[in-house]
Computed example of a mutant assay.
Amino acid sequence: MTKNAPINAQQIPEYSAKSLYPEPFASMVKHRTRRKLGDYFGLTNFGINFTTLAPGSISALKHHHSKQDEFIYIISGTPTLVYGDNEFLMSPGDCFGFKANSGMAHQLLNRSSSDVTYIEVGDRLPADSVEYPYDDLALVQKNDGTWSVLHKDGSPY
């Protein structure tokens, strides 16, 4: 494969690294697969993932970012977007944006019997943090771009 020509997104290898989430949270996203399209092409200002949610799986724990804007575009399937206290059934062609530092937690759920595929885009501003209002988890990005995985009281996992 060459990176100097278009490629079908499904030909880009699935990202195989384990989740940043510690257990028991990691098991909750084990049926989510990502193909890191932005990384494949060496993009550094923003990330793009081609994500598949198997039936019964979730995109992430309900969360919001301090600095990272996010955007999703549904390709196939009918996921449920949980956004704050609201739920929205989405269909192919639907999209939604999540503004950083809004305090509005979100996630996608696949309650259907078919796979859901979507594109997710996020910027890569440094010093981001991720809050999980319903779980004892916090992610804090260090200056070198790596993440600290913490309990809400600041102690490490």
Results as ranks from 00 to 15, higher is better:
L81R: 05
L81T: 02
V82G: 06
Y83P: 03
G84Y: 01
D85E: 13
N86D: 11
N86L: 09
N86T: 10
L89Y: 00
S91K: 13
S91L: 03
G93A: 01
G93C: 01
D94S: 06
D94V: 00
C95G: 09
G97S: 13
F98E: 07
K99W: 00
A100Y: 01
A100Q: 08
N101P: 01
N101A: 07
M104K: 14
A105F: 01
A105L: 09
A105H: 12
A105G: 14
H106A: 05
Q107A: 11
L108N: 08
L109F: 15
S114R: 09
T117W: 09
T117C: 06
Y118R: 08
G122W: 12
G122E: 04
G122A: 05
D123W: 11
P126F: 06
D128F: 01
V130C: 13
E131P: 00
E131L: 00
P133H: 00
Y134W: 12
Y134M: 10
Y134N: 14
D135C: 08
D135P: 05
D135W: 15
D136H: 03
L137I: 08
L139Q: 13
L139H: 15
Q141F: 12
Q141Y: 11
K142S: 08
D144Y: 12
G145V: 08
T146Y: 11
W147F: 03
S148F: 10
V149Y: 10
